[in-house]
Amino acid sequence: MSVTFKCRGKSTFKGISGKSQVLFGLVFTTRYLDLFTSFISVYNTVMKVVFLVLAYATVYLIYLRFRSSYDSESDSFRVEFLLVPVAGLSFLENYAFSPLEILWTFSIYLESVAILPQLFMITKTGEAESITTHYLFFLGLYRALYLANWVWRYHTEGFFDQIAVVSGVVQTIFYCDFFYLYFTKVLRGSGKMTLPMPV
C-alpha cells in the first residue's frame, strides 16, 4: 500500500489535523507556566506569549472560523493513546517532583509525539495540500534545529538536557520519511509524494 501526497493550490484547512494543533497548544501551555512565577527577559516573555496566542488562534481558526473546511472525520487519531503514557512518563522521569517541573517535562514529552495525529491523518486521507507539506517540513526543521542548538551548547557550555535531547531525537525520527519524500518529490516539482506503507 502507498500513500500519495497531492500538492494542490486550494486555500483550505483540509489536511490539517486539529488534534495536533490542540496538542501543541497544550505543549506551550504546560511549558510556559513559569510566565506566572518568574521573569527572565522581555524577549523571553514576549516569545512565550506569541507562541501561546498563535497556537490557540490556530485552534480557533480550525474548529470555529473555518470549521467547514476541516476534515474532522479523517482527523481520528486517539489522542488519549499519547496523553496517558506521556503523563505517566512525566511523573516517572523528571528532574524534580514538583508541579511546574512535572508539567514542563510533560510538555517536552508531549511535543515529541504531538505531530502523530497529523501524520496519521495524512496517511489516512492519502493526500495533503501543498501548503500542508511545506508546513510539516518547517515544523520538522524547527525541531531538527533544536538538535543542532543542543550540540552547540554542549560543546560551548557543557550543557546537556537528557530529557529534552532524547525527546527531540524521537520527534525528529518521526519526520525522517517525510523529510526524505519532501526533498525528493516536492522540491523537485513532481507535485506529489508517495510514502510506502506496510500492508
Rank of each mutant, 00 (worst) to 15 (best):
N149T: 00
Y180H: 11
F178Y: 15
G168D: 09
W152N: 02
P117W: 05
V199D: 12
F39A: 05
T29N: 03
T172D: 11
S68K: 15
S68R: 14
F28Q: 06
K48L: 10
R67S: 14
S76R: 10
I62D: 05
L119A: 04
A164S: 12
L23V: 05
I122M: 14
L195N: 03
Y180E: 05
V113Q: 02
T12R: 10
T172P: 01
G18N: 10
G191R: 07
L100F: 12
L61R: 12
L61A: 13
D34Q: 06
K6G: 01
M121V: 07
F91C: 13
D75V: 02
P117H: 07
E111P: 03
D75L: 04
C7A: 14
L187N: 08
Y43R: 12
D161Y: 07
V49Q: 02
T37W: 08
L119V: 05
T105D: 10
A57Q: 10
G126T: 04
F97C: 03
A57T: 12
G158E: 04
S90K: 06
L139S: 08
S38T: 13
A148M: 07
T133Y: 06
V79C: 13
L147K: 03
I131E: 01
Y56D: 04
Q118L: 03
E157G: 00
F106H: 10
L100M: 13
F138V: 11
L92N: 01
E111M: 07
F13I: 06
K14T: 12
T30P: 01
P196I: 07
A148S: 13
